[in-house]
Design a protein around this nucleic acid. Structure first.
Lengths: 210, 210
DNA sequence: GCTCTGTGATTGAATGACCAACCAGGGATT
DNA sequence: AATCCCTGGTTGGTCATTCAATCACAGAGC
């Protein structure tokens, strides 16, 4: 997953010239504390302690708590990249990568879901999340388009399919994080099968319901 | 959607015998404020003001903020019921109802998604959300089983399909709330088409990927 | 080599605001 | 008079943010 900085030019994060590994240290600490304790239970003090620096320093590198969280979000998204190849093979590979990610990065997913909720009422975080979700759906759409092309099917349904498939990914993430007993692997397999059979069957749009 | 009270017997919410419309008034106010401002920007004082009662009264009816929120969640879930019929017709009807809900109850969905995030680090709220998600997935599974039976397909894949379909519902909800421009209707239609074609095509489990 | 001086990095305390929960009591109804 | 409903202020604490004051260090002038 990837997200662009919301406003790369206007949002000056007081980037200091030298010794920017302190900034990195604070970012890592923020990620750790946020994913462990949750957004509303995390104070700047907690993050500073985890990073082993003074409280004031956090605000020296990040103008506000929100900007710090947005920077963390930007980091988290990078940890969740899933795409490695193109076409049908790429789609299947992405599903497999997603299964691995679900097992190995629950911390990133926990924080991600958390920030989706927070972003609904926080402008800055919301903008980051929205941008990320659009980007991700776009990638799925691109893959879907390739798969449809391979099968010589109508490419117009790619956008709708991408919406549904990316929704499935998000929803599996949610269910897995909320409920440890949820069988995510079988759900991902089902989603893969569903999406690929739909891509196969559809050649006149996706209004098959009712 | 429905959820059971977490611990119906132990969790005494100081339920007063009479004049319980005040309780209802507080619940409604809490829902309004929570969905408008978000969980971490909502104080008991805000809720009391919205309800037109004194701060102390909120704690008279609800032992803690968490218990109030759980009660609101319980209410929200009732507002999101989607199932009206059985079998394939019931599945299609549920998808249609969901589309209507997406249009008409964004407040409930906003709060629901918000609480999913909060529930990841709050025991009480998390238990409510988990219970709800399991119940919902169970209903989808029941529908899937009926559809599979109608088509004389292997019913063993019902659970996996339900996981993926319910994931799609959750994910569409998320995308719609995060991004007002998201075309939820076409995504729901695609999800419906995908799930029904998968149900049709599958008769030996759901390991079609790779 | 040594001091002086400027600058960015860092500290920890102070500020002002807010909040959940508690409590002491007032008024009504039975 | 006892129980229930309700009030509004208090308490003890936390929070994000600000700020004055150090620190490390590097280059300039001597």
């Amino acid at each position: 997953m990837t997200v662009q900085p919301v406003t790369p030019s206007t949002t000056k994060e007081h980037t200091p010239k030298l010794s920017s590994d302190t900034r990195e240290k604070i970012l890592k600490a923020a990620f750790a504390v946020l994913s462990r304790q949750g957004y509303e239970n995390t104070s700047i003090k907690d993050i500073a302690e985890e990073a082993g620096v003074a409280q004031g320093l956090v605000h020296y590198y990040f103008k506000s708590k929100q900007q710090l969280v947005v920077a963390v979000l930007f980091d988290v998204c990078k940890k969740m990249d899933v795409y490695s190849a193109e076409g049908t093979a790429g789609a299947n590979a992405a599903f497999e990568n997603f299964k691995v990610l679900l097992r190995e990065r629950p911390d990133a997913h926990t924080l991600y879901i958390q920030l989706i909720g927070v972003g609904l009422h926080d402008k800055e975080i919301g903008a980051g999340i929205r941008e990320n979700i659009r980007t991700e759906r776009g990638r799925v759409e691109s893959l879907a388009r390739q798969v449809l092309a391979e099968r010589e099917a109508d490419p117009r349904s790619a956008r709708a399919i991408a919406g549904a498939v990316w929704a499935g990914v998000l929803g599996i993430m949610v269910q897995k994080m909320v409920d440890p007993e949820f069988n995510a692997d079988e759900a991902v397999d089902a989603l893969a099968a569903m999406s690929l059979s739909a891509v196969f069957a559809t050649n006149s749009g996706a209004q098959a319901s009712i």
